[in-house]
Amino acid sequence: MTAMFVLIPIALAMGFVGLLAFLWAVKTNQYDDLEGHGARILLKDYDDLPVP
């Protein structure tokens, strides 16, 4: 039972990190040109900057 008091916060914290990563991605325009960013990695002079 005591194991849960350790495991639950860890599980929640991991989920929360995922949520923060998602929010960061939305905030930095990474959802604005889904097709373009997907195709961009195939270019030789690839860069990962979002569209200005």
Partner: peptide
């Protein structure tokens, strides 16, 4: 600089 957004 030249950037093309494919979806738009």
């Amino acid at each position: 600089e030249a950037r093309l957004a494919l979806s738009t």
